[in-house]
């Protein structure tokens, strides 16, 4: 029993070593604050540990599975803390640089694929990246986004669709 448990604690440690950085970065983007990001990241990995994670091996990578758990935990935490107003939410965050001290030397920017990744979102027209960011990182529904930006719901639907289509196209072009 002890051996098995020890082995699995190591398995979780390996999982954290591989994906902890991406998890923390996403949590930081969602929570906008280091302490909250640490809490969300820890909660996500503890929940994976406690209940036995199961990811969709055919469809996505372990990383996207971990990140989906982080996103859900983060959005849950935001909603718990909520009575958020639209003014609290910094929708430009995706495109902003973080303080230099927090950057890693092996920043994803260094490899080509990562450049494509960042480029794909950064190159979107602002209204499209804003709509996608508010939904994915802010946890707002399309209706909430339409209300806060005071534009018709159909416009928001269109911006999300165009944004995803453009990112998809630029991925193809990059390859």
């Amino acid at each position: 029993m002890t051996l098995v448990e020890g082995g699995e604690a190591r398995a979780l440690e390996v999982l954290y070593d591989r994906h902890g950085g991406a998890a923390y970065s996403l949590a930081h983007r969602i929570m906008g604050d280091r302490q909250a990001a640490e809490d969300v990241t820890q909660e996500a990995f503890v929940s994976i540990w406690r209940s036995g994670g199961r990811y969709d091996a055919m469809r996505g990578s372990v990383r996207s599975w971990v990140l989906a758990i982080v996103r859900n935990r983060g959005i849950d935490a935001l909603r718990r803390a909520s009575s958020r107003s639209s003014l609290d939410y910094d929708d430009d965050g995706a495109l902003e640089a973080q303080p230099a001290e927090e950057r890693t030397d092996s920043s994803v920017l260094r490899n080509e694929r990562a450049r494509v990744v960042r480029g794909a979102m950064a190159e979107l027209p602002r209204d499209q990246s804003q709509a996608l960011g508010l939904a994915y990182f802010g946890g707002f529904t399309h209706r909430e986004i339409a209300d806060m930006l005071d534009v018709p719901l159909g416009t928001i639907k269109g911006r999300m669709r165009l944004g995803l289509e453009k990112m998809r196209t630029s991925m193809d072009e990059a390859i």
Binding site: G21, L26, E38, V46, S64, R71, R103, A120, M171
Partner: peptide, 24 residues
């Protein structure tokens, strides 16, 4: 789907503080 997966990958990559791993 690949475009959706780019969203979490598009954020600035930060190094988690080492203390986070110890706490975990």
């Amino acid at each position: 789907a690949p475009a959706v997966e780019l969203l979490p990958a598009s954020v600035e990559q930060l190094a988690p503080p080492p203390a986070l791993k110890s706490r975990l």
